[in-house]
């Protein structure tokens, strides 16, 4: 038996979609090593993320951002009072991004040294892909480079092929 990661319903192994809530169980099985990750489908939001300026409620009150990296199991909490750069540290260039994904296998997953940045502004918490080599996916939507998109708690981001969940507090 397996449990639906979205609603906890018990299902037979080999089930592809939860019969109770309709969530896909595939991604979870692929990336898992037997233990199911509790976050993987929590944030599965389909469709295109909204651009700033569109009619949404931006998250402007957040102070803390938590990055959860399923592949390595790391949880990183950072404050949002300054720009958070995401990438891989490069000592020769004196580049030390606030979120350094080297330890999570960043290089092999195609994370650029300077991949993306996250900022808190009046328009919410925004993510910008900084023309990274392998791109950034927000909830499965490929972000055009150098354009800000608002983030919400529970969003799923892929830097290259590296999956990261974010939570805002």
């Amino acid at each position: 038996m397996i449990k639906c990661t979205a609603c906890g319903y018990e299902l037979l192994s080999g089930t592809l979609y939860c019969e109770e809530c309709g969530a896909s169980l595939l991604e979870d099985e692929e990336t898992s090593d037997g233990t199911l990750h509790p976050f993987t489908s929590l944030s599965r939001v389909s469709g295109r993320p909204v651009l700033i300026g569109q009619d949404v409620n931006p998250v402007t009150k957040a102070e803390l951002i938590t990055f959860v990296i399923p592949i390595s199991g790391r949880h990183i909490k950072l404050t949002l009072d300054d720009t958070i750069r995401i990438g891989r540290a490069d000592p020769t260039a004196s580049l030390y991004p606030e979120l350094d994904l080297t330890a999570d296998g960043g290089a092999e997953y195609g994370v650029s040294r300077l991949h993306a940045s996250i900022d808190l502004s009046d328009e919410g918490v925004l993510i910008v892909d900084m023309s990274s080599t392998n791109g950034t996916l927000l909830n499965n939507y490929r972000l055009p480079p150098e354009l800000p998109y608002p983030l919400r708690s529970g969003d799923e981001i892929r830097f290259g092929d590296l999956l990261v969940h974010i939570f805002l507090d």
Binding site: L16, Y17, E19, G22, S24, L26, E29, E30, G34
Partner: peptide, 26 residues
């Protein structure tokens, strides 16, 4: 051991739609 192979997309799509149909019936 689980080989982690992804089911063929056509099968996944069909099962997804079957599941939507069943959710409605339920």
């Amino acid at each position: 051991n689980d080989t982690g192979a992804i089911p063929p997309p056509a099968v996944v799509r069909a099962v997804q739609m079957l599941n939507l149909h069943r959710m409605n019936e339920k």
